[in-house]
Nucleic acid binder design. Structure first.
Lengths: 157, 157
DNA sequence: ATCATAATGAGAGTAAGTCTCATTTACACC
DNA sequence: GGTGTAAATGAGACTTACTCTCATTATGAT
């Protein structure tokens, strides 16, 4: 298992914009300037980000619009909402705009870092989950596998 | 892999109360009537519950006290807070008061059901996570593995 | 260029959860 | 069993992440 950097995107920036545009169009949404800046802010962050972090990177974006657009992007399959990190939601690109990965969630500061596991383990996890889901009459969409603990910064305090 | 019922607790009710009492005492907290009723409400639910669901099962408990006590119980290692199910936190007993398990999270109604995976898979997951955590200087506490999808009730609509 | 429609943004509104503080309860010691 | 002290309670004010509203503006199709 190699630890990949989150800065290795599966798509180039222009391909990302094209893919986002296509997904929005498929849901009858427009790829406006504001949404483009929002996508670029998430891209620049390179990690799951909260709304305040987005507004810092892309000042001038109205919070109400960012919230609304994160919603649109989520429903269009562009973005995932992560709620494991405390009281503030984090956002990141959804698959396949970003490769499948998991999270290190800091229980102290709520920060979230991406990590990658090997495909064999992912396959066993999916197989096992599919089995229990079937027994419960549950229709699986995706899994989330997060490690909760203390990040390097918080541990050294 | 056998699908265990969540109604198979690792502890009897009196053992549960004893264990809770001990954990509270270890943190210099008292096991009061209100906390006892709260613990029993979570026990009766048999699934991760939200605050309104607790108040229904145990009417008369003041919401502010329930919130405060859920906090105390969480910090004393009695209860886990689950934030995967939308905007409302769910609570359930922590290990080892409840055996290690995972969740089916309905993306429609936000309900959460417990499922159990086999120990071998859990071990591989822990091994892999420990490896990536070490590389990131992250101190692991616990992992969460949730399956997101649509529950039987919501799928049939 | 025009037009219909979607998107924007400022601010009001909502609701989950926290804080405050006067009162009550639980445990330790006698 | 009483007594004192410190923790727990509960009602309601408060905070804040997020959503809604609606008048204005930008977008993309023709």
């Amino acid at each position: 298992m190699t630890r990949r950097r989150n800065t290795d995107p599966p798509l180039s920036t222009s391909d990302l914009h094209a893919a986002v545009s296509q997904r929005l169009a498929r849901h009858d949404h427009r790829y406006t300037q504001g949404r483009r800046r929002l996508v670029e802010a998430i891209l620049e962050a390179g990690q799951p980000v909260t709304l305040p972090e987005i507004v810092v990177v892309a000042p001038g974006l109205a919070p109400s619009s960012v919230y609304r657009n994160l919603d649109v992007l989520e429903r269009s399959g562009v973005v995932n909402r992560i709620t494991s990190g405390g009281d503030r939601a984090h956002f990141e690109f959804a698959e396949p705009l970003m490769s499948h990965h998991h999270h290190l969630v800091c229980v102290d500061c709520g920060s979230i870092e991406d990590v990658f596991l090997d495909d064999e383990l992912e396959a066993s996890v999916d197989r096992s989950l599919a089995e229990v889901a079937g027994q419960a009459g549950f229709t699986p969409l995706r899994h989330s596998l997060d490690l909760h603990g203390r990040c390097a910064g918080c541990e050294s305090d």
